[in-house]
Design a protein around this nucleic acid. Structure first.
Length: 353
DNA sequence: CAATCGTGGGC
DNA sequence: TGCCCAAGATT
C-alpha cells in the first residue's frame, strides 16, 4: 500500500475536502475564487508566509492587516523607514524576519521592477525566503507544482507512511515522500489543503481522524497510532540567565532607550539600557542616576529563561548621548519587543503611583 | 549540522 | 506550572 500510493490517492480526496472546509484567512483566495480564475496578490502571499514562519495564524492576523494597510504594495514597504517597520513588527518575534522583509522588498523594488519572481529558485535567493517559503509562494501565488514541507506536512506525511525516523533527521525522507503526493494541477489549493488538514484535523496531540479525507491511505490510522507520529529527538533543557534593565526618564520626561545592534537577539529593536544577560554577574548601571530597584520580570526565549531585574530613575539630567531619547508622546510601548515591554509595564506602574 | 532566533496559547 | 507547539531561515 505504501509503495503503491498514487497522487490521486491523496490529492483528489484532499482537494475535495478542501473545497468544502478551507479556512477563510485574510491573505487567502478561496477555492471557489481560484476556480473562477482569481489569483492572490504575490505580495500578500509573501507577507503572510514570512509572518507565519513559526508563528500561529491567530498571532499573525492583526499584524498582517496592519502591515498591508500601512504598505499596500511591495514598493510602499520598500520605501518605508527601517524603524517604522521594526516598530510595527514588535511583539511578533523572530525579528530577523522583519529585517529580511525590508531587505527583500528593496531587492524586489530595485532589481525586479516591483514584481516578485515566479520560479522557486529565484524566490529562494531572496532574503528571508528559504525552502518552505519559496515553495509556498510558487505554489500559492503562481500555481506551480512545488511541494511545501512545513510542520503540518511533516506531521501528515509521517502519519500517512508511519515514518519511525525522528525529526529533524527525517526531513529529507518526508520531503521526498511529500513530493510523490503533489499533483500537477491546483498546486496552490493543494499546498493550502495539506496545511489546513494538519492545522485542523491531523493535529499534533490528538488527531481527529473521523472526518479526515485520507484515512483510507493513512498507515498510522490503520494501525491506530497516529498520535505517536512524528517522532522527535528530545530537546535540550533551557538554562536560566539573569540580567538588569534600567528604565529612566529625563527631567524633560523623555524615556532613555537604546537601539540594539542588527545582529543577534532582538536585533534592530528598541530596548532599555542594561547589563549583559548571563548565568551570573554583578549589577552595574549603564550611567549614574538615583536608581530604584523594582523587582523581576520573567521571560522565556527560544533557548533560555531570563530573569530580568528592573531598575527605574526619574529626573535624569545627562544620559550619555549614544542613547535614544523619546518624548512621552513620541513613545509607543508597542514599539518594544515583549520582554522590554514587560520591563516598561513594571516601571511605568511604579512611576505613576 | 547544531545552534540561534520570540512569543502567546493550549493542555 | 512548565512544556509543547506554530505556514522556518540563517549561519
Amino acid at each position: 500500500m505504501r509503495d503503491g500510493m498514487k497522487h490521486s490517492d491523496i490529492a483528489a480526496p484532499l482537494l475535495r475536502w478542501y473545497d468544502a472546509h478551507a479556512r477563510v484567512l485574510p491573505w487567502r483566495v478561496s477555492p471557489a475564487e481560484r476556480a473562477a480564475g482569481v489569483m492572490p496578490d504575490p505580495y500578500r502571499v509573501w507577507m503572510s508566509e514570512i509572518m507565519l514562519q513559526q508563528t500561529t495564524v491567530a498571532a499573525v492576523k492583526s499584524y498582517f492587516e496592519r502591515f498591508t494597510a500601512l504598505w499596500p504594495c511591495v514598493t510602499d514597504l520598500a520605501n518605508a523607514e527601517d524603524d517604522e517597520v521594526m516598530g510595527e513588527w514588535a511583539g511578533l518575534g523572530y525579528y530577523a524576519r522583519a529585517r529580511n522583509l525590508l531587505k527583500c522588498a528593496r531587492v524586489i523594488r530595485d532589481s525586479y521592477d516591483g514584481h516578485f519572481p515566479q520560479t522557486r529558485a529565484e524566490l529562494q535567493s531572496l532574503p528571508g525566503i528559504g525552502p518552505y517559503t519559496s515553495a509556498a509562494i510558487a505554489s500559492i501565488a503562481f500555481n506551480q507544482p512545488e511541494t511545501v514541507v512545513d510542520g503540518n506536512v511533516e506531521r501528515v506525511v509521517s502519519r500517512l507512511f508511519r515514518i519511525e525516523t525522528p525529526l529533524p533527521g527525517a526531513k529529507p525522507e518526508l520531503t521526498k515522500l511529500a513530493e510523490t503526493l503533489t499533483p500537477q494541477d491546483r498546486a496552490g489549493d493543494y499546498a493550502q489543503a495539506m496545511m489546513d488538514l494538519g492545522a485542523t484535523i491531523c493535529t499534533p496531540k490528538s488527531p481527529d481522524c473521523a472526518p479526515c479525507p485520507l484515512t483510507d491511505s493513512c498507515a498510522a490510522h490503520v494501525v491506530g497510532d497516529a498520535a505517536r507520529f512524528p517522532h522527535k529527538t528530545p530537546k535540550k533543557p533551557k538554562p536560566t540567565r539573569h540580567g538588569h534593565a534600567y528604565v529612566a526618564r529625563t527631567t524633560r520626561g523623555e524615556w532613555v532607550l537604546e537601539k540594539r545592534p542588527d545582529k543577534g537577539l532582538l536585533g534592530g529593536m528598541l530596548g532599555w539600557p542594561g547589563t549583559h544577560w548571563a548565568q551570573e554577574h554583578a549589577t552595574e548601571a549603564p550611567f549614574n542616576a538615583e536608581w530604584d530597584e523594582l523587582g523581576d520580570v520573567r521571560h522565556t526565549f527560544t533557548h533560555f529563561h531570563l530573569v530580568l531585574t528592573v531598575h527605574v530613575a526619574e529626573g535624569v539630567t545627562n544620559p550619555p548621548d549614544h542613547y535614544t531619547l523619546r518624548e512621552e508622546n513620541a513613545f509607543r510601548p508597542s514599539d518594544l519587543p515583549t520582554v522590554m515591554r514587560k520591563a516598561f509595564d513594571l516601571a511605568h506602574a511604579k512611576l505613576e503611583i
